[in-house]
């Protein structure tokens, strides 16, 4: 039998074999249901803004997004979000609630290092890449469309 301690490639293959498989069906189902439910809640909130707060249908997205961010942030601050996210995975991470969670969890955590150096500097530690790549994409796409 091969001495795997001298054979990194063979060891890595064995390690890959021994990895327990995630329960794909359960994860996909939960992500679908929770993600769908969060979006449905967003739709409900948006309808309320249109009906009772007189927002025009194409401008109601802003207060809706802000409300969903508030909800995601509150669940994060009260320690509930990560318990749901453990099961829901992408169901809570992909909607804007996940964006809120990444910012509020960082703000909470780094409070220990003070508000300027902790909260202020590190608030976007996790969400920053989404903003950076979003902006870069918008710039490139905008440039291409302006040149066409």
């Amino acid at each position: 039998m091969k001495n795997l301690l001298r054979d990194p490639k063979a060891y890595q293959e064995l390690a890959e074999q021994k990895k327990p498989r995630p329960n794909l069906a359960k994860n996909l189902f939960t992500a679908f249901v929770v993600g769908g439910a969060i979006c449905t809640l967003g739709q409900f909130i948006q309808n309320i803004y249109i009906k009772y707060f007189n927002f025009a249908p194409d401008r109601a997205g802003d207060p809706t997004t802000a409300t969903m961010i508030f909800i995601g942030g509150l669940l994060t601050a009260t320690g509930v979000f990560d318990k749901i996210a453990r099961h829901a995975g992408a169901g809570t991470a992909v909607p804007v609630t996940g964006f809120a969670n990444s910012i509020v969890s960082a703000a909470l955590e780094f409070k220990r290092e003070g508000f300027v150096l902790g909260v202020g500097s590190k608030m976007f530690a996790l969400a920053g890449s989404v903003i950076v790549f979003g902006v870069v994409t918008a710039f490139v796409v905008g440039l291409i469309s302006a040149l066409l």
Binding site: F32, T40, Q43
Partner: peptide, 24 residues
């Protein structure tokens, strides 16, 4: 502007795509 059903289905689908990428 979309119904609760389409919101649920499309939102769920985008999250499902995200979960596939997480797991695979």
């Amino acid at each position: 502007m979309g119904s609760y059903l389409t919101a649920f289905l499309v939102g769920g689908l985008i999250c499902l795509i995200g979960q596939l990428l997480f797991d695979l």
